[in-house]
Amino acid sequence: MQKKSNAFKRFASGTGFKLLIVLIILIIIAVLISSDVLKGGSPFGKGFFSSINLRSLLYKLVLPLFMLSGLGMLLISGNIDLSVAAQATLCNAFFAVMMRDTNLPWWVVFILGLVLAAVIGLLHSIMVLKLNFPAFIATIGMSSVYTGIAGWLLNLTNVNVSDKAFLSIAKTTLFDLIPLTTLVGVLIVFICQFVLSRTRFGRNCFATGGNKFASRLAGINTNRITTILFMVCSVITALGGLFYVSQTKKADPTAVTSSAPNMTALSAVMLGGVAFSGGTGGMVGPLIALLVMQVLDNVLTVIGVKPYWNTFAVGALLILALIMDYLAAEKRRKALLAAVQ
C-alpha cells in the first residue's frame, strides 16, 4: 500500500507544469509569426517581444493579477467573492473623488482607499459567517451596490487624477520594460503561495476549505481565517485597482466591470488547479494560467485576428483545459484502481 508521495506531488503540480508548456509554445509561435526572426532578424525587434507589446501586455495584467491572489486564497478556503471588480471600481472612485475634493496627500488617500476595501471585506465576512448568506449570491448582490455607489460618487463620468507623484507609480518600470505595478502583483502572488505552503495559517486555509467542521473540531478558528481572507482579498484587489488608476490617470465608473477582470481571474484560478469546492490547489498554477490567457489574447491581437476570436479562444482554451484535466483524472483513477489490486 506504500505509495510514493513524490508521484502525487508531480501530479499536483502537473496542471501548472502543463500550462507552462502551453505558455512556452504560445510564446514561441507568437515570436515566429510576429517578429522578423524567420527572416533572419532579431526576435526582439517587433512583434511579440517588442518592448511596446511586452509593456502593454504587462500593464494589462495588473487588474486580473491582483484579483488572482485574493480570489485564489478565498477559493481554497471554500469561499468566493464575485464583487471584486465592483469593489475596485468603488475604491477607485473614492480615491479620485477624494483627490479632487480634498487636499490630502495622495498616500493618505491611498491608505484610506485600502481601509475602505478592508471594511468591505469585513462586511462580506459578517454576511457569510454571521448571517449565513451564501457567498456566491451575496457578493453578486453587493456588486450592484458598489457599482451604484461608485456611479453616484463619480456622477457617472470619469474623474481624472493628476497628482504627479501618484501617477509616477505606474510609470515606474524595470529596464524600461517591466512595470513596477505588475512586479508587485507577481510578488504578491508568490507571497500568497509562500503563506499557503509554508505557514501554518496557510495550511489551515486548506483545512478550512477541505472540511470546515473537522477543522473547527481540531481547534482551528475557521471564522478568523475566513474574515482575514475576505479582507485580504478586498485590500489586494483595491491595491490593483488603485495601480490601475495610476495607469489610466482616471477613475472610470464602468471600465473595470465591463472588462470583467474578476471573471478572467476566476477562470485563471480554476484553470490553474484550484477546485471550485476549495481545499486544494496553489497560486503558481493560476498565475501561469493567467499568463496563458493574456498571452493568447495578445498573440491573437498581434497576429491581427479579429478581436472576437480572442473571446472564442479564451473560452475554447478553458474547455480544452478542463477536458485535459478530466482525462488526467481518469488516468489517475485507473492507476489507483490498479494499485489497490
Binding site: M263, S267, T311, F312, L318, I319, L322, Y326
Partner: peptide, 21 residues
C-alpha cells in the same frame, strides 16, 4: 463531468466569439 459553472462560462466566450464571427 465538468462543473457547470466553468463549462458554461467557457461556452459563453466560445459562443460570443462565434456570434461576432
Amino acid at each position: 463531468r465538468f462543473p457547470s459553472f466553468i463549462a458554461t462560462l467557457g461556452m459563453s466566450s466560445v459562443v460570443r466569439g462565434l456570434m461576432y464571427f
